[in-house]
């Protein structure tokens, strides 16, 4: 019996009226269900402890420190370690692949809805993030005109599909994460493993990267906008480059030019370059990311560099 094997018995006859009713009912149910399910999912994600749900949720305790960046920001500024060391309320809004334009939109949305933090920490290497995350946040687009505009600009097909099907807006990994953190905070999320020997060996044998990736001028501008927006709200802003594994960092032969470009983009906020601050392999999950063991030393490094002065 194959899955679509049918009995020899034909279907009971459907009158023309019944057929039309079935087609109309199908269309109505498909459309109405799409809207209703999307509404339900939207309400559900509003209850989540996931970082972006906190941005768009009403109320909630304000944060003293906001963190922005890509995955290096996620693992480099570990909120529990920062909170423990400073007694400040820390909200890490960094996310894998988050570029500066998205970070700016998230920051502005946060500032529109919540009291300003005392300190904004930003890892400016997020200018190297590959584009693509913006449309992953389409599940929050209904709550943010800025996000919607970014999606329209970067992924018009996705934006159009999201207008046809509201349920499709929730077809993102970010939404699944929001569901996962429905009754808990996501701020304890960090790489919990250390780099393996195979990866280390691959890095030892890797060729240096001689060409600086093309930096989008709009991304560099967005770094400046983040600084301006945060300062306008009364927050101190620190641009801190989270450590790389030295084996990896030495491959980036264009590093000084890169940092100079970052500095030029944010003349009022000098970049604190901690890219080679740590050489203990055990503190890294891979070449680019710190792990849980690296969290406390990172807080110490921030403190030593004076980056936490606003909350101490």
């Amino acid at each position: 019996m194959d899955p679509f094997e049918h009995t020899a018995e034909p279907l009971p006859p459907h009158t023309a009226g019944r057929r039309v009713a079935m087609v109309v009912a199908f269309l109505v149910i498909a459309f109405a269900g799409d809207r209703l399910l999307a509404l339900g999912l939207g309400a559900l994600q509003a209850q989540s402890g996931f970082r972006f749900s906190k941005v768009y949720a009403e109320g909630g305790p304000p944060a003293d420190v906001l963190v922005l960046g890509d995955s290096r920001g996620v693992n480099g500024f570990y909120a529990p370690a920062l909170a423990k060391a400073t007694s400040a309320r820390v909200l890490n809004l960094s996310y894998n692949g988050m570029g500066p334009r998205l970070a700016e939109a998230i920051l502005r949305d946060y500032l529109d809805r919540h009291p300003a933090p005392k300190l904004v920490l930003l890892d400016p290497t997020c200018v190297l993030a590959r584009p693509g995350l913006v449309s992953e946040l389409s599940n929050y687009a209904g709550r943010s005109e800025r996000l919607q505009a970014l999606i329209e600009a970067e992924d018009p097909d996705r934006a159009a599909a999201g207008r046809v099907s509201h349920l499709y807006r929730f077809n993102t990994e970010v939404f699944l994460r929001a569901l996962f953190y429905l009754r808990k905070s996501d701020q304890t999320w960090i790489n919990d493993y250390r780099i393996g020997e195979a990866q280390l060996q691959a890095l030892r044998e890797a060729e240096p990267k001689t060409e600086l990736p093309d930096l989008d001028p709009a991304d560099l501008e967005a770094l400046g906008h983040i600084v301006t927006a945060a300062r306008a709200a009364g927050a101190d802003v620190r641009l801190v480059i989270v450590p790389y594994l030295p084996l990896y960092r030495r491959l980036l032969t264009w590093w000084p030019i890169f940092v100079a470009q970052l500095d030029a983009a944010t003349p009022d906020a000098p970049v604190l370059d901690l890219s080679v601050a740590f050489d203990d392999v055990a503190l890294f999950a891979d070449g680019l990311h710190l792990n849980r063991r690296g969290a406390a030393p990172m807080v110490d490094a921030l403190r030593a560099a004076g980056a936490l002065r606003a909350i101490e």
């Binding site: 049918h6 279907l11 009971p12 459907h14 019944r18 079935m22 009912a25 199908f26 149910i29 498909a30 269900g33 799409d34 399910l37 099907s165 349920l167 499709y168 929730f170 077809n171």
Partner: peptide, 22 residues
């Protein structure tokens, strides 16, 4: 497919599934 109501709901559910997971 033999039950019009079930078929209609299942068809709509398939579309929702595709929209949500596709």
């Amino acid at each position: 497919v033999r039950r019009p109501v079930v078929a209609t709901l299942a068809g709509a559910a398939a579309l929702w599934f595709i929209a949500f997971f596709g």
